[in-house]
Design a protein around this nucleic acid. Structure first.
Length: 648
RNA sequence: GCUGGCGUAGCUCAGUUGGCCAGAGCAGCCGCCUUGUAAGCGGCAGGUCAUGGGUUCGAGUCCCAUCGCCAGCUCCA
């Protein structure tokens, strides 16, 4: 008997019965066989040494692909669990998958792991890898499996919860054994532990069983594993690179902002250089909104409880709000309750409702740089990226339902234009649809979802559907960008809202003088100005494009006698709107240049005797190895002014 | 909020098992030098060791609480 193997390139081979993925790989070539870690048989993943049961399309998974690393990492997770169970008698284990760049395993142990424990575990893992223990697959009935794992309640819960995603096929489950260690697992795994060439444990942290904070708290250990020491080292270097870009670190080094603990967590103050950066972004935002059909409005930071009652925030969002302030109360008299705003929408709605509205005014686009405060749980705070006080480039668009599709279209074009202006050009979107708990009618939801999808299609933006992830009041689009080192950040959000116009009884007069209810769109493009600055800092590693750079040009006199000329050059730069700084400190030229470069200033001008004599400057631009000398001042000023011009 | 880790001059860090251990570099200030493209030289000043309690003859070091930071979990109308 023989079976027919089809390879990904379409070629076919006839192989003897009982052939394995490894045999196929070896038949193709020894190098492939060496790099192979698993195989796909039709759509299923198989271990390398598991016989292929029937004619199939087979492709070899090698260790230097994402799928291959996934297998390596999953196997590494097993080895880690094996080490932990050996080192910590009485401990038990829960779930241990491969994840992006690594793996983790959750354990229930007497005491949380210490850094020393991680070292011991890593050493034990190295022993297991050195022993090159084969992974052996087996299938058990559910009843047998429950007995096998009788000491491991989490595993029993998984088995009892029979789920095809967790190693369960019909009424049997698969297990993998290496040496004395047995784990419930769908596989596949590498043939033996010796294949794990490069791994490292990263950290431990608490995690809840099944991700549910009401359930048992487990101890999770994160690790990473790669196909080679070289690949692991490259990954560790990349982590260091990301750490160097950390906006909290750079914000401090570049003197942009700080988080004084006296303020309380999640609250920042902006230093002059950060202030001008922010200001530049905000000016850009206001300017582009004004030229794209928006009207600028302003609203206060607090409002009476009634407003938040009507908007539904007190019902749905109270936990995210700063607690109530009671004013004018006392002596038995109840006071007036106020809340700090967590969102701007109710204010914009009141502006809409300040007088009767006609269809002729719609779409009405109200825009505000609105500062909101949210009582984020302390554990989620993260520099500017997740703060308790932040400013949204927020707008609420009131439109007829007829115009909704066109408005969404126009909006998406606007979003992409803005993000491109800041130097982002890779986008991904999520389309979140109706959740179980929702307001409004299903038909309207459906239409809104279709309009959102259509706008994404026509903007040629690829998107992922997130079923049921919409807000209770309407579906939404979230737009993510990829930064310079490939990380994905969610920035813009566009949300359709059927609920608030209802809550506030909004209306407009139609051309037949009947009353209709407008639809609202909530949208923020940069999201929060704070977070956006954080993302820009990390994207550019602090070396901002010239139009955003807090200091755009540093002017350095060679000696004291050139200071006056340097100041006149500086004044000419200031005169054309360039943020120039004359560094006439009592230091050597080399030192002052170094200072300007490490502060990431885009341009450095040095002036000495020759320049004073000929009205020229020496110009060094960021990113260029050497300077140009003897440039006429007027030329340099014109060139820098051009470079510093905002995108629009 | 939960679990773990952490908190020593503006910044980056040293400070053995509690006992002449409160230190260094950079930044700052004051001098000298007058500089042509990534760190000139010398000096000075700067910390209630996050805060508040406690243990001890003695606490930066041990314990407790609070505040803040980090990682992860959870959350992210």
């Amino acid at each position: 008997m023989s079976i027919r193997i089809t390879l990904p390139d379409g070629s076919e081979r006839t192989m003897p019965d009982g052939v394995t993925g490894y045999d196929v790989a070896a038949d193709i070539g020894p190098r492939l066989a060496k790099a192979a870690v698993a195989v796909t048989v039709d759509s299923a993943m198989y271990d390398l040494h598991r016989p292929i049961p029937h004619d199939a399309t087979v492709s070899i998974i090698t260790d230097n692909t994402e799928a291959g690393r996934h297998v390596l990492r999953h196997s590494a997770a097993h080895v880690m669990a094996q080490a932990v169970l050996e080192l910590f008698p009485g401990s038990t284990f829960a779930i241990g998958p491969a994840i992006q760049d690594g793996f983790y395993y959750d354990f229930s142990v007497d005491a949380p792991f210490t850094p020393d424990d991680l070292e011991r575990i890593e050493a034990k893992m190295a022993d297991i890898v050195a022993a090159d223990q084969p992974f052996e697959r087996d299938e058990l009935s559910i009843a047998d499996a429950l007995v096998q794992f009788e000491d491991h309640p989490f595993k029993r819960e998984i088995i009892a919860g029979v789920d095809a995603d967790e190693g369960v096929e019909g009424d049997t489950v698969s297990t993998y054994r290496n040496d004395a260690f047995l784990d419930l697992c769908r596989g596949p795994h590498v043939p033996s532990t010796g294949r794990l060439k490069a791994f490292q444990l990263m950290r431990s942290a608490g995690a809840y069983w099944r991700g549910d904070e009401t359930k048992a708290q487990l101890q999770r250990i994160y690790g990473t594993a790669w196909e080679s020491r070289k690949a692991l080292d490259a990954y560790l270097v990349q982590l260091e690179e990301a750490a160097k870009r950390d906006h909290r670190k750079l914000g401090n080094e570049l003197d942009l902002y700080s988080f004084p603990s006296e303020l309380g967590s999640g609250l920042a103050v902006w230093h002059p250089k950060g202030g001008i950066l922010r200001r530049t972004i905000e000016d850009y935002s206001r300017r582009t909104h004004m030229t794209h059909g928006y009207e600028y409005v302003v609203s206060p930071h607090v409002a009476k409880a009634d407003l938040w009652e009507t908007s539904g925030h007190l019902n749905f969002y109270r936990d995210g709000m700063y607690p109530v302030m009671e004013l004018d109360g006392g002596e038995g008299k109840p006071g007036q309750e106020y809340f700090v705003k967590p969102m701007n929408c109710p204010f914009h709605i009141l502006i809409y409702r300040a007088r009767s509205r006609s269809y002729r005014e719609l779409p009405l686009r109200l825009f505000e740089l609105g500062t909101v405060y949210r009582y984020e749980r302390s554990g989620v705070l993260h520099g500017l990226m997740r703060a308790r006080g932040f400013t949204q480039d927020d707008s609420h668009i009131f439109t007829t339902e007829t115009d909704l599709a066109g408005e969404l279209q126009r909006l998406l074009d606007f979003v992409l234009m803005v993000l491109r202006d800041f130097g982002f050009d890779e986008f991904e979107a999520d389309l979140s649809t109706r959740p179980d708990k929702y307001v409004g009618n299903v038909e309207a939801w459906k239409r809104a979802e279709e309009y959102l999808a259509a706008s994404l299609d026509s903007a040629d933006l690829s998107y992922q559907l997130a079923p049921g992830e919409g807000a209770f009041y309407g579906p939404k689009i979230d737009i993510h960008i990829k930064d310079a080192i490939g990380r994905r950040w969610q920035l813009s959000t566009i949300q359709v809202d059927f609920a608030q116009p209802e809550n506030f009884g909004l209306e407009y007069a139609t051309n037949e003088n009947t009353r209709e209810r407008p639809v609202m769109i909530h949208r923020a493009l940069l999201g929060s100005v704070e977070r956006f600055v954080g993302i820009l800092v990390e994207h550019y590693a602090g070396a901002f494009p010239m139009w955003l750079a807090p200091v755009q040009t540093t002017v350095i006199p060679v000696a004291d006698r050139h200071a006056e000329y340097a100041r006149s050059v500086g004044d000419q730069l200031l005169g054309v709107g360039i943020r120039a700084h004359v560094d006439d400190a009592d230091e050597t030229v080399g030192e002052k240049i170094r200072r300007a470069i490490t502060s990431k200033h885009p341009a450095v001008i040095v002036v000495g005797d020759n320049d004073v004599e000929h009205s020229t400057v020496g110009l060094r631009l960021r990113g260029e190895d050497s300077e140009q000398r003897g440039i006429p001042v007027v030329e340099a000023v014109a060139q820098l002014a051009e470079m510093a011009r905002p995108p629009r």
